[in-house]
């Protein structure tokens, strides 16, 4: 019952947040001077063509009316049609989102699979040469811009060594994307690099904190093997902050995806959003903002739920 109440409250909060985000973004977009018509139609468009475009897109109506109309169509599942891509926004998102998810999920998986053991290892080997070495590497990876790292990987692995292609998979469907796994390596590694650096630092700090806890000392005094203490107790407790951070990392992953998509010619959500912003494609911009907002809200919600499962103390603290 407590959990159901908690979830209901969080879902209502999430809906309110998403609604506020759409209002803010809608107002900001329409506050841009000039409107999108001239940009979309190009310098050679006539005044008549611009007026026709504005009328067709409802841009000649008062702003509140436009917003209410947007909400009306939104609840019917219609996100509008892209001004520039000649496609329904929902269809564009349907095509691009899975591609970005593949990229971000694989990058996150690789990042976590490396960061978690690495962070724990550093915690265990605190202040030893290996800890210093990995810390230095983490700082280098964290401070290296994703764009630069991607270019470097392209240069080395596609032009010098020629091990991998310079482009991510070019297929439209997920099956086509997975059919060319070699092409996924560089984009995934590029996306994962900063995540490894960030999360290994969190994991290291959490491991150190937990290793100093009384329960570890008690377990040691009770004769538990170091491996058992590390994996059964320290590992699980150290995961809590990492899981909490993961939810908030969703927008960062999308942001990183934009750079990776640009570099590796992989038209996903990040690039869709960037292109729409460049071309004042309002329906696509709003659709992308909506998806990113929902993803962030769901991500934080899931992180909270997983955290409650991993660490029962959270349950009593938060309700």
């Amino acid at each position: 019952m407590e959990t159901a109440l908690y979830l209901t409250r969080r879902l209502l909060q999430a809906l309110a947040v998403i609604l506020i985000v759409t209002v803010v973004v809608f107002c900001l977009l329409h506050a841009l001077p000039g409107g999108p018509a001239r940009g979309i139609l190009g310098p050679q468009a006539t005044a008549q063509q611009i007026a026709a475009f504005n009328h067709e897109q409802g841009l000649d109506r008062p702003l509140p009316v436009q917003y209410l109309y947007y909400l009306h169509t939104l609840v019917q599942g219609d996100l509008g049609t892209s001004y520039t891509l000649n496609e329904a926004v929902s269809r564009l998102i349907e095509q691009r989102l899975p591609k970005t998810l593949v990229l971000t999920v694989l990058s996150a998986l690789l990042g976590l699979l490396l960061a978690i053991p690495l962070g724990m290892w550093q915690g265990v080997r605190r202040n030893k040469p290996v800890d210093y070495a990995v810390t230095t590497l983490s700082f280098v990876a964290y401070s290296t811009p994703v764009y630069f790292l991607g270019l470097l990987l392209i240069l080395v692995f596609t032009q010098v060594l020629r091990w991998f292609p310079s482009q991510a998979p070019q297929g439209d469907t997920l099956a086509q994307v997975f059919a060319d796994p070699l092409a996924l390596v560089l984009p995934v590694v590029t996306g994962a690099a900063s995540m490894i650096a960030v999360f290994s630092r969190y994991m290291r700090a959490a491991t150190l904190e937990n290793l100093a806890e009384d329960y570890v000392r008690t377990a040691r005094a009770g004769g538990s093997r170091p491996g058992a203490i590390l994996w059964r107790h320290v590992f699980r407790n150290s995961l809590t902050p990492v899981i909490a951070m993961l939810g908030y990392y969703v927008p960062v992953l999308f942001g990183g995806a934009l750079v990776v998509e640009q570099l590796f010619n992989y038209p996903g959500m990040g690039l869709l959003f960037w292109s729409a912003a460049q071309s004042s494609d309002y329906p696509v911009l709003l659709g992308c903002v909506l998806v990113i907002s929902v993803a962030t809200v769901i991500g934080t919600l899931l992180a909270d739920i997983v955290q409650r499962i991993v660490d029962p103390r959270v349950k009593t603290e938060r309700i």
Partner: peptide, 25 residues
Amino acid sequence: ARTRLLAGAVLSTGTLLLAGCSGSG
């Protein structure tokens, strides 16, 4: 414990690299 940590890190990298070691450029 340390051996397993190291092995975990190597394995995770290996798995992803193996996943990538097919297909064509």
